[in-house]
Every structure is written in C-alpha cells, then in structure tokens.
Amino acid sequence: MSICLYAMCADNGAFDLPVLKELLTAHALLTMQKEGLMLVYLEAGKLPNLTTTATQYDQIITHLSYYTTALPVRFPTLLQDLPALTHWVERNQMAIQEKLTNLAGKVEYTLLLRNTQAENDIASLPALPTTTVGKYLKQKLAEYQPIIHKENIVNAFLAQYLPIFAQNSTQHKRLAPAQPDIIWEAVFLIEISHLPAFLPILETNFDLPPTIHLAYSGPWVCYHFATL
C-alpha cells in the first residue's frame, strides 16, 4: 500500500496527548517513530480528493505545530510503502533533525506591497521630439518607466523598513510576486517570542505612496523554510 507522507515532526512526547491522538484518528492518520522523529502519514487509498485533502493537510500541520515542531512535506508526496519512507528518512536523518532544530518555535509571515494604480498611470512620460528616434525613446520609456518606478518604490521601502523587519525575524526570502499588482513579496521566519515586537510594526503607518499598500498574512507553518 502506497502512503502519503504529511509531516516529519520532532518526537517530543506530544503524540501521547489525547488531543493529538484524536486529531490523527479523525483524519485516519498514522504515525511511525523513526530516528527520533515522528512521521505522520496516510494510506494513499484513503485520500478523498486533492483539493479537500490539501486544505485539510494545512489544518493538520498547523494543529500539529501547536504541540511539536512539524516539518511539512510538499503535498501530495506519495511513497511506495513504509520501507521506502524509512530508507529515505535514514539517509536524510541529519538534515531533517537540523531543520527541525532550526524551525523550532518559529512561524512564517508573508509581507507584500500591492500597487492599486494602473501601470500606465504611474508616471507621465516626458515630452520628446516626434522624430523616429524620439518615438522609439518614448516607446522604450513607456515600457521601462513603470518598472523603474516600482523598483524605486520597493528600494526606498526596503531601505527604510527591511532592517526593522529583519531585526525581529530570523530569516527572510524575497519571493517572485504571484500577481501583477504585487510589486514586492517576501516571507519572514519569526520566532514566536518575537511576535509581540514584530506584529505591531505591521500596524504602523508606512511612508508609502498613496496607491501602494502593505499587506500581510500569517502566521503560517514554516513552509518556505522547510527545504532540506
């Protein structure tokens, strides 16, 4: 029977708690102790459908993270059988343990800058001669000016605020924006004990142009920092 691996967790005794036992039972999840880890998996035949299970998966990993450090595995990762899983864990045990240690007591937040203004309204173009060269320059300016304008806004924002965010976070990664109106996106790894310092910063007034807004989401289990 193939299995779907959900997470690799620190084996800190939390899985003896009734609340976790109930959670695992409710979702037909199984566990296996291996190399100081608790592996949480499901028999692949019990997966209902990908979308439903994917959302359940996040809820389960989030719930697990209340009690232990959970290393989420990209969903769905199907393995041939338990021996295939244990073999893989044995080979990667050091990296898994190191990652679990690094992510213990941490969550991630996504921060992004969104531009609510249409791109072609961002900046007026200078008057240029109506010669062929002038037209060409104007075309290129129209093409690049919004990009330069956005980069300038992002650079000014990062110069002013990134040190403040970084001061209260362990690590951060810049992400490729998922939508065209997002001009900057990054994910921050934050110690839970630093949240009282980090979250109020997000509620302050940022020195941004009127059409640019900072948005954030979190806390999340450390999906972006779980790569081995």
């Binding site: 193939s2 691996l5 690799m8 990908l50 979308t51 994917a54 959302t55 998966y57 996040d58 290393l71 989420p72 595995v73 990209r74 969903f75 769905p76 990762t77 199907l78 393995l79 041939q80 295939a84 899983l85 073999h87 893989w88 080979r91 990652k99 996504t110 998922a178 989401s217 999340w220 999906y223 972006h224 779980a226 790569t227 081995l228």
Partner: peptide
C-alpha cells in the same frame, strides 16, 4: 484557498529519490 494551496502544493520538504511516486 489560493494562499493555502500555494504553500501546500508548492512549498515544504520535497522528497527526491527512488522512494517518491508523485508530487502535485
């Protein structure tokens, strides 16, 4: 849902090697 799926399907530990059958 998009945020959840983006993380769940695209992030997390990616197991590589002979043991794996599929990723999304």
């Amino acid at each position: 849902l998009a945020d959840v799926l983006d993380r769940v399907l695209n992030k997390g530990v990616m197991i590589q090697g002979d043991a794996i059958i599929s990723v999304a």
